[in-house]
Amino acid sequence: MFNGLSFEKLLLVGVIAVFLLGPDKLPSYAAKLGRLVRTLRDYANGAKVRMKEEMGPEFDDVDWKKLDPRQYDPRRIIREALLEDAPVAAAPVIKPVSKPQPAYLSRQKDGASPQPTAAVATPFDSEST
């Protein structure tokens, strides 16, 4: 969270705070900041203790790193889900029956005989379904 926060930056913030707040108000604000940090830490510890009490002994068995959402890769999850299933037999490909075209559709403008059309099956990809 505070990866770019170095000692020099904290010192600079402290010097600016001394100039803005003045030496007479700075100790009271530092005390308030300390109380705020202690209060937040107590809230976090209280939530942790309450969760342990409510979940019981299963709380210690939970692998929290495994539940980290930053580790999920959708491609890996899909790949593993597809590999778990047994291979599914591909559906049979049904070839369309070619019907003779009516004369008004097969006539060309120049009066030449129409080109024969071959019945071509629609491409089928068994992995996409």
Results as ranks from 00 to 15, higher is better:
residue 93 V to E: 15
residue 65 K to L: 02
residue 111 G to T: 03
residue 1 M to N: 06
residue 36 L to Q: 07
residue 74 P to Q: 01
residue 14 G to S: 11
residue 27 P to E: 02
residue 5 L to N: 06
residue 40 L to V: 01
residue 73 D to R: 00
residue 3 N to W: 12
residue 99 K to V: 15
residue 15 V to P: 03
residue 48 K to G: 06
residue 70 R to V: 15
residue 33 L to T: 00
residue 17 A to S: 03
residue 74 P to K: 06
residue 10 L to W: 08
residue 129 T to K: 10
residue 9 K to P: 00
residue 97 V to R: 04
residue 69 P to W: 01
residue 116 P to E: 12
residue 58 E to K: 06
residue 52 K to T: 00
residue 1 M to Y: 03
residue 17 A to H: 04
residue 48 K to R: 13
residue 95 K to G: 09
residue 87 P to M: 10
residue 55 M to E: 03
residue 127 E to L: 14
residue 77 I to S: 05
residue 21 L to F: 10
residue 3 N to K: 11
residue 32 K to A: 09
residue 93 V to P: 02
residue 30 A to I: 02
residue 84 E to H: 08
residue 95 K to S: 15
residue 101 Q to S: 14
residue 51 M to R: 07
residue 74 P to W: 04
residue 106 S to E: 05
residue 52 K to I: 00
residue 112 A to Q: 09
residue 9 K to W: 01
residue 97 V to G: 05
residue 4 G to V: 15
residue 30 A to H: 05
residue 25 K to S: 11
residue 75 R to D: 07
residue 107 R to M: 04
residue 41 R to W: 06
residue 106 S to C: 13
residue 26 L to Y: 02
residue 74 P to V: 00
residue 102 P to I: 12
residue 4 G to D: 07
residue 12 L to Y: 10
residue 34 G to E: 01
residue 55 M to K: 08
residue 38 R to F: 00
residue 21 L to Y: 02
residue 3 N to F: 08
residue 41 R to D: 03
residue 80 E to G: 00
residue 38 R to K: 02
residue 34 G to F: 05
residue 117 T to V: 14
residue 73 D to V: 09
residue 30 A to R: 11
residue 40 L to Q: 12
residue 72 Y to F: 09
residue 3 N to Q: 15
residue 52 K to Q: 08
residue 68 D to M: 01
residue 8 E to A: 14
residue 114 P to R: 06
residue 92 P to K: 05
residue 25 K to Q: 12
residue 44 A to D: 04
residue 72 Y to I: 02
residue 129 T to Y: 15
residue 69 P to I: 04
residue 47 A to D: 11
residue 39 T to E: 14
residue 49 V to D: 05
residue 71 Q to P: 00
residue 98 S to C: 15
residue 14 G to M: 06
residue 112 A to R: 14
residue 77 I to Q: 01
residue 107 R to P: 04
residue 70 R to H: 13
residue 94 I to P: 14
residue 6 S to W: 08
residue 83 L to G: 00
residue 26 L to S: 07
residue 47 A to P: 04
residue 40 L to R: 11
residue 50 R to T: 14
residue 119 A to V: 00
residue 113 S to H: 10
residue 113 S to W: 05
residue 43 Y to P: 00
residue 71 Q to M: 11
residue 86 A to Q: 05
residue 42 D to M: 06
residue 62 V to L: 09
residue 92 P to D: 04
residue 43 Y to M: 05
residue 118 A to K: 15
residue 7 F to Q: 08
residue 75 R to T: 03
residue 49 V to W: 01
residue 44 A to S: 14
residue 13 V to W: 08
residue 44 A to Y: 03
